[in-house]
Design a protein around this nucleic acid. Structure first.
Length: 605
RNA sequence: GGGGGCGUGGUGCAGUUUGGAGUGCACGCCGGCCUGUCAAGCCGGAGGUCGCGGGUUCAAAUCCCGUCGUCCCCGCCA
């Protein structure tokens, strides 16, 4: 309005200490309450909401105030008053004061939005993504973006305090032969050739170690053309770290520093360091998964010894075939102890690959109820109660199967049953308690291909204690049992999420070639695919180790969101499309021509 | 590639099991009243291709087949 106008004040920052002065605010109409003779407007900007009062005494202001609608953009100047006694709003940070408008200018009108911009209104996610700019206008979403930014800023600071140098690596790179499918980028200058969008900076960061970088980090986008989940987007952000002359604990220390700084930024507190460690073997045996959710009560227990001399045929037969009997306690069942609930539980176990499932319910008074109770001796039942620490209302689930199957099935049920109950009922809900899973197996048997695959990637160093086995090749690994042959590889886990993984790397050509051989990559193939890395190792590569954290996941977990889409400004749907822009879109004919491409299949209309 | 959930005025739902007139609830929207509200309140009103296509039937939001979108999961994600 006036030429020498006041500086813009943020709506959410006005307080009693600003009262009595004239202020100028700009923002969106969050709500309007028209009392006929008095109009209240809640004006929202990125910092919060301030109540504006339009009084008929200021006729011009009042006339406009009666006309404005949701989401109109206004510039308002007025005096900040302490609210009349009894009209303060405790629920609003600015609830002690209100702006008495002396000037009200409409900067932009708005059509009625497709949904109300309010944290409390639930909207279909497809619609939110279609109008993401309106979705992001919701205070909760803006706060999520702000928390994300502050966490990333804190991470950079922590990384730099650890002496790391941020180095950018190419995102247009060469397709990696293994791992995820690549997003391909055809090149106009090289018809018939294409770049791949980087799945991770893995090889580049190792080359930076050879280059002599004292310690590297990068916060960067990575791309993987795989099917999506709540915790997976086709493009995601990774905190990538690599240290020269470093061992496992050096890396874990740096990662802990960055994770704690992110936690401090978002939650205002950080977990104790060092984070607890658990071996992969322990995670599998106690929880049936390599990313256990420790908030859930109940662990897997091996009950095989309990049934050494059992009369129960299903168990005795299983044991004689080398199967194990594994049990798991669950805290009650959500729908009471109905027969149909247990039937569904058994059906689910079968679906997950078990041959069957035995359940035992502890009834009020302590009696054990089970369809197979009559086949089990009193001593066996009491041993189950004892080993699983069963209490009234608990359910014991018992699976007799190959150890890997029994663990897999019970590990899944453990998580699925917990997600049926509410968050509040979970042990330790709300805590951020990350921990390390260390000593991952070096490789796993690929049933389909009939060969060993690296569990992490082919650049992980073997565990020194298992090096001898690996050096004798794939047959020796298979003979020893792939699960027992370890790599110096580790994951960071929290709340059942894999937040990141890393390893000590191989840094000599000789060992790298040995490892390639052990996992079935022959020298010709190795030369073609990773020749540049092997070549670099000829010129003095330092021992090095590193880690990569999924930033989207870390931030989602820190904000206790179930999906990373809640902490990504413009995420894609589960089918990898973007409802707002319509991406991906058909390729224009002239673009195809300039790339030297033709299509075999027309895109769907 | 596979399993499951959802799709009904602008939004969120109920209705679908057991076919019978587009029936209902809350919010939003439009109009009116209203000077202390704060997701204001009261009164009135408008607004529908029940995702789309096909089938069964005298009759389909409802049953069947197909398809699209979306969410969760399996496979996949070194």
């Amino acid at each position: 309005m006036s030429e020498d106008r006041l500086p813009r004040r943020s709506c959410g920052t006005l307080s009693a200490s600003d009262a009595g002065d004239t202020h100028r605010v700009c923002g969106w109409v969050a709500h309007r309450r028209d009392h006929g003779g008095l109009v209240f407007i809640d004006l929202r900007d990125e910092t919060g909401v301030i109540q504006v009062v339009a009084d008929p005494v200021a006729a011009q202001v009042f006339e406009v105030a009666e006309r404005v609608r949701h989401e109109w953009v206004l510039e308002i100047t007025g005096t900040l008053d302490i609210r009349p006694e009894g009209t303060e709003n405790q629920d609003l940070p600015t609830g002690e004061v209100e702006l008495k408008a002396s000037s009200l200018k409409v900067l932009a009108e708005s059509e009625t939005p497709p949904f109300v911009i309010d944290d409390r209104v639930e909207v279909d996610e497809a619609l939110r993504l279609r109008y993401r700019y309106l979705d992001l206008r919701r205070p909760k979403m803006l706060a999520a973006l702000r928390k994300r930014a502050s966490a990333i800023s804190a991470i950079r600071l922590a990384a730099e305090e650890c002496g790391l140098l941020e180095v950018e690596t190419p995102t247009l790179t060469r397709a990696t032969p293994e791992g995820a499918r690549d997003y391909m980028v055809p090149s106009r200058q090289h018809p018939g050739s294409a770049f791949a969008l980087a799945q991770s900076p893995q090889l580049y960061k190792q080359l930076l170690m050879v280059a002599g970088i004292g310690g590297y980090y990068q916060i960067t986008k990575c791309w993987r053309d795989e099917d999506l989940r709540a915790d997976r987007q086709p493009e995601f952000t990774q905190l990538d770290i690599e240290l020269p002359f470093a061992g496992v604990d050096d890396v874990l220390g740096v990662v802990e520093a960055t994770v704690c700084s992110a936690s401090q930024a978002i939650r205002g507190n950080a977990p104790d360091r060092p984070f607890p460690k658990m071996t992969w073997a322990e995670a599998m045996s106690r929880f049936g998964t390599d990313k256990p959710d420790l908030r859930i009560e109940g662990e897997l227990k091996d009950l095989t010894s309990v049934f050494g001399g059992t009369e129960f045929r299903a168990f005795s037969a299983a044991i004689s075939q080398g199967s194990r009997i594994v049990g798991l306690k669950s805290k009650g069942c959500p729908e009471g102890a109905s027969r149909s609930w247990f039937d569904a539980l058994i059906a689910r176990a079968t679906e997950l690959g078990a041959k069957g499932l035995v359940w035992i319910l502890v009834e009020p008074g302590g009696e054990l109820r089970s369809p197979v109770a009559k086949f089990l001796s009193a001593a066996e039942l009491e041993a189950i109660r004892d080993v699983l620490a069963l209490q009234e209302g608990d359910i014991a689930m018992i699976v007799a199967d190959a150890i890997s199957v029994a663990r897999e099935v019970l590990g899944r049920l453990r998580v699925e049953l917990a997600s049926d109950s509410t968050e509040a009922e979970r042990e330790g809900a709300g805590e951020f308690a990350p921990f390390w899973v260390v000593d991952f197996p070096f490789a796993e048997w690929n049933e389909n291909e009939g060969r060993l695959d690296p569990l992490h990637h082919p650049f992980c160093a073997p565990h020194p204690d298992d090096f001898e086995i690996i050096s004798r090749g794939s047959d020796a690994i298979v003979e020893a049992g792939p699960e027992s042959v370890r790599a110096l590889a580790y994951d960071l886990v929290a709340d059942g999420w894999e937040l990141g993984s890393g390893s000590v790397r191989i840094h000599t050509r000789e060992l790298q070639e040995t490892v390639f051989e052990a996992i079935g990559i022959d020298p010709t193939e190795a030369e073609e695919k990773f020749g540049f890395l092997l070549e670099a190792f000829r010129y003095g590569a330092p021992p090095h180790a590193g880690f990569a954290i999924g930033i989207d996941r870390l931030i989602a977990v820190l904000q206790e969101e179930a999906s990373i889409r809640e902490v990504v400004a413009f995420p894609k749907t589960q089918t990898g499309s973007e409802p707002m822009t319509g991406a991906p879109a058909a390729i224009d004919g002239s673009q195809l021509a300039s790339l030297g491409l033709s299509l075999k299949q027309s895109p769907r209309p």
